[in-house]
């Protein structure tokens, strides 16, 4: 797998299902069911979920995590699926756009200057984008070097 999961915990999870009824997406989005995804992960047939919009419908509200007697949660399985999807470039357009803006500017938008003036707000502080870009370059460089070593920051 291109993302790591604790299969032992998932095995337990597949027999539990306790958090299903408090998961907002399970209750309100037709077709959203992490139990199905987890079953397929355990069977080794999760490939069909990579292109599915459902794996993005986990709201990361952490309800399942808090509820879970293993402190594991549906969300770990969904995050792993999303990580694989993003690596293959099949993530939603808005996620792509958000990521691009983030790596380019270090933020998800720039302070609204005219509105700030109108409200009498002080000038917004700088973003540290240069340092941020340097860090990103360093991280990429170290990944290049460490390829095959399984670096922790992969």
């Amino acid at each position: 797998m291109e993302a790591s999961l604790n299969l032992k915990l998932l095995e337990m999870c597949s027999k539990c299902g306790a958090c299903f009824s408090i998961c907002p997406s399970c209750v309100n989005i037709p077709g959203y069911d992490p139990r199905e995804v987890i079953k397929d992960i355990l069977d080794g047939s999760h490939e069909k979920w990579i292109n599915s919009k459902h794996i993005w419908e986990c709201l990361e509200c952490h309800y399942c995590l808090e509820m879970c007697y293993q402190h594991y949660g549906f969300e770990n399985a969904m995050t792993a699926m999303r990580t694989i999807a993003a690596k293959r470039g099949v993530h939603p357009t808005q996620v792509k756009r958000g990521w691009e803006m983030f790596v380019k500017t270090s933020r998800l938008g720039e302070p609204a200057i005219p509105a700030r003036k109108k409200l009498g707000l002080p000038e917004a502080k700088g973003s540290g984008a240069e340092e941020f870009k340097k860090l990103y370059a360093l991280l990429k460089e170290s990944r290049e070097k460490g390829r095959g070593h399984g670096g922790k920051t992969e």
């Binding site: 995050t79 933020r107 998800l108 540290g128």
Partner: peptide
């Protein structure tokens, strides 16, 4: 404080690159 970047937003950034 000078120099804060995006926190960053988990759903956008973490799914794409956990290290970053």
């Amino acid at each position: 404080v000078d120099g804060f970047t995006c926190c960053p937003e988990k759903s956008l950034v973490n799914n794409v690159d956990h290290g970053m």
